[in-house]
Design a protein around this nucleic acid. Structure first.
Lengths: 215, 215
DNA sequence: TGGTGTGAACAACTTCACAGCG
DNA sequence: CGCTGTGAAGTTGTTCACACCA
């Protein structure tokens, strides 16, 4: 056992998240116990990789048997901090913003969206599900502070992203997930992830072009 | 010069995509030429990394000066294969699907969405912008074949994703981008990328939990 | 016996440091 | 003189192979 809580590869964290999804599916399909071999097949990761990933955090398996799916899922959620409740808000209620607001999996992972903002006066005042009403972006700072919101999801157009990020920071946000197609800059005490949807497609185009050129 | 077209790190490809975005912004902001130093600041990548990334594909800069922003953008687009026209379709016209259908940046990168499918009879027949009408998922195979669609974007719920993937493959698709929160499996000649939105948030939660525990 | 946990070998990626050129 | 292009050094992440234990 090591349980050294530092120097964990970022890639490991990314995979932990996919293990959760697979473990949920495995429970539904009535697998109370699973080996790293089979789990690897399910989530397309090598068995050695899975064992290594888990070994950073402790010993969760039983030798000669495997892992208890339910227990392991709970352990990973604990590791990732998904057992907390994370008050979250969305800025930019376009199609993408709405998609995220309605995304059931978020709630299951501990993220509860408690506010939504948009700069369009026509949208402001619209009641979304569960008592959330779209507020104007001018109220970002005070609402984030008042509701103690910790995570902000930015789904605005590129040109609004930086300003919105600054408003969220001013309100005391601790983490930001930015879907706008431009990178935003925030003070380094804020945890930030820039997600680029286009780059995924670009990547696909590159791989396909390679295959085409090779043949 | 090397121009060895193999063994390019996947991370490099991901970054090329972000360079394009920055270069576009730089042109708007009237920078005809840029050094790796400054470009690095813009897209939050080290200057050495940028030079190394580009050196895999050729020599695009002028020593003592820097890179021509416009030319470099064009070169990178060529490298990624974004100067082709990629006929693309979307399966699953929920909020996320609609967001992608309306995403202007896709067209700029050469992806033209030419069909949309949904299993909900209430949605079938709805005309989206530019002459695209939502078709039933039963027509996936024949439409993909008929319109010679090369890329499929899956934005269905998890339980429909695998079946949809198989229908797209049957129609002759060459690349798949899967947004459904489950991994799909396809023959290995198909280029596949699974995108997990939840895992981005999970990642954020982990990083924030770490910070909290440390302090 | 069978599958985990893990150090040690290996592979991939990033940074350094400086030669080379406009 | 300044900034690119790049081998070589350093760092980070993955796979191997086997000890160990239910």
């Amino acid at each position: 056992m090591k349980t050294k809580e530092c120097k964990i590869p970022e890639a490991t964290i990314k995979r932990l998240s996919t293990y959760i999804n697979c473990l949920e599916r495995l429970q539904v399909e009535n697998h109370p116990v699973i080996s790293s071999e089979l789990l690897g097949e399910y989530c397309q990761v090598s068995p050695a990789q899975i064992r290594k990933d888990l070994s950073y955090f402790g010993e969760f398996g039983v030798r000669g048997v495997g892992y208890d799916t339910k227990k392991l899922e709970a352990e990973i959620k604990e590791i990732l901090g998904l057992n907390n409740n994370w008050p979250t808000c969305v800025v930019g209620v376009g199609k993408l913003g709405l998609a995220l607001l309605n995304f059931a999996l978020f709630r299951k992972h501990g993220f509860s969206i408690t506010a939504a903002f948009d700069s369009d006066p026509a949208k402001v005042g619209t009641e979304l599900s569960a008592g959330i009403t779209i507020q104007p972006t001018t109220e970002i700072e005070q609402t984030v502070t008042g509701k103690k919101i910790l995570i902000g999801i930015i789904t605005t157009p590129a040109d609004a992203a930086q300003k919105v990020a600054e408003q969220l920071v001013a309100g005391g946000i601790q983490g930001l997930l930015n879907f706008a197609p431009t990178k935003v800059k925030v003070p380094e005490e804020i945890t930030l992830r820039n997600v680029s949807i286009t780059s995924e497609l670009d990547n696909l185009a590159y791989l396909m072009t390679q295959k085409r050129r090779r043949s």
